[in-house]
Amino acid sequence: MQPKVEEHETLTIRVSRLNGGSRTFRYNDGYEEVIISKVVKWINTSSSAEGPTELELNQAPLSKIKMRMKNGEVAAIEPAYHCISEKQAKKCIIADGEVIFTKGKMKVRLNSVELFDWLLVGWKFESVGAAEEELLEETLYTRYFNYLNNTYSDFIMCPTIDKIERINGDTRRHIIHASALNYGAHHGDVPYDRIHITLTDTPEEGVKINKVIIEKAVSGKESLLQCRRGN
């Protein structure tokens, strides 16, 4: 059986280690949504693994993920183990790259190196909020976005300053190229559209919008790159 998790139906993912803290990722957080997205992708693209699905240890799992869904369901992910009996004693070692996924009556053993690594240690190294350079770009984009009319009010997702050119080398006069995705496609029902804005910013004329282009149905790869989520 292959589990199928819908990203937009996921409310939170909480990871906790037996010794080592915990952290909760929320889908309605613009920066944590991408983390939930990749965890869901790893689940849905994992392969079946042979072996028992019951934890053959009388102790809590080393690390565990709890996924809460909008419909109230809870799914769990924990490391899988290989157990052998030696001289009437059972010895269990963690199964590298394998996890146990449980949701309702479904309990399956999966092979996913990425999910396994993230479950054990990867979640600890996820950034909190936006990086400093992203915040600077968002601030600039917000300043220039205010000069657009309401026709483009939905283009507020993953704003990027793509290029800044000095006019005749002057540090006070610039040509700005900016872009962003439309928030309306946030839930994944339709592809994103992307706005491309070209403007000038000078002391004499202030901000002047020169060109606005709407790129329709941006590919999934391009939308990930726009949001700094691509490879």
Rank of each mutant, 00 (worst) to 15 (best):
Q2E: 06
P3S: 10
E7V: 12
E9A: 14
L11S: 04
T12Y: 07
R17V: 06
R17M: 13
L18S: 06
N19D: 14
G21W: 01
R23T: 05
R23V: 02
Y27N: 13
N28V: 01
E32R: 01
I36C: 06
V39I: 12
V40P: 02
W42V: 03
N44V: 06
S46P: 06
S46R: 13
A49C: 15
E50I: 12
E50N: 14
E56W: 14
L57N: 02
L57C: 01
N58Y: 09
Q59T: 12
L62Y: 06
L62Q: 05
S63E: 07
K66T: 12
K66D: 09
K70S: 11
K70Y: 06
G72P: 02
G72D: 01
V74S: 09
A75F: 03
A75S: 07
A76Q: 05
A76R: 06
E78V: 04
P79W: 02
A80P: 07
C83G: 10
S85I: 15
K87R: 07
A89T: 05
K91C: 03
C92R: 06
I93V: 11
I93W: 10
I94R: 02
D96A: 05
V99I: 04
V99F: 07
I100Q: 04
F101A: 01
G104L: 01
K105W: 00
K107M: 13
V108H: 04
R109D: 00
R109T: 00
N111G: 01
S112E: 09
S112F: 12
V113D: 05
L115T: 11
L115P: 07
W118H: 11
L119R: 02
V121I: 12
F125L: 10
F125Y: 13
S127W: 09
G129C: 04
A130V: 13
A131M: 06
A131T: 05
A131N: 05
L135G: 08
L135F: 15
L136V: 15
T139A: 11
L140A: 12
L140H: 10
L140D: 08
Y141P: 02
Y141V: 02
Y141L: 03
T142G: 02
R143D: 03
F145A: 08
F145D: 04
N146R: 06
Y147T: 03
N150V: 12
Y152L: 09
Y152V: 06
S153D: 11
S153Q: 11
S153K: 13
M157A: 08
C158N: 14
C158D: 14
P159A: 12
T160Y: 08
D162Q: 10
D162L: 13
K163H: 00
I164H: 09
I167F: 13
I167H: 10
N168M: 15
D170W: 08
T171G: 03
R173V: 05
H174Q: 15
A178D: 00
A178L: 03
S179N: 08
A180I: 00
Y183T: 10
G188R: 13
P191T: 14
Y192K: 00
D193L: 09
I195V: 15
I197A: 10
D201E: 05
E205S: 13
G206K: 05
G206L: 04
K208G: 05
N210K: 15
I213N: 09
I214K: 12
G220S: 01
S223E: 15
L224K: 08
Q226E: 15
R228P: 00
G230M: 15
N231K: 14
N231C: 11
